[in-house]
Amino acid sequence: MKKVYAREEYCLGCKLCEVYCVTSHSESKDVVKAHKMEEITPRVIVESTGEVSFALQCRHCDDAPCTKACITGALQKDPETGIVGYNQEKCVGCWTCIMTCPYGAIKRDEYGRSIISKCDLCIETGEPVCVVNCPNNALVFIDLAEKQGEGVEEQDKLVKEQGGCRD
């Protein structure tokens, strides 16, 4: 499936991906209103320390441990698209998914509600907004298996060429 890969060597750590993520997941879809009038937690997390930074979002794992850990069925992997979907209505905020996520890609809601925030690959708009709006092309949205080779090693090589880290 197509996933978002980070190219750490070009990430500015500007966090514009977070800004556009918030806007895209807002009611108003307006960058100013989304930040000033709505309470939205970005679904992408920029990890940075010193000069190293990269954007991290849900890896939509094949064998997603969060879906198994979820006690209410709020997290489900769509067998067709491969996207690990999240149903906010079902979530009770037990945070078990956060503990099981091997990437630390799930966040608690920043406004104290008993919900989580995680990447949905912008299913509504088609192309992840973090990728579209990255000022330095530090994020790519590609299907590694489709690109070439099926072997894990080849995929690793491809991701490395792209400068990203494999999930």
Partner: peptide
Amino acid sequence: YDKCINCRVCERQ
């Protein structure tokens, strides 16, 4: 300030 959303991109850049 009507437009500034405190995203701090300017500060980081």
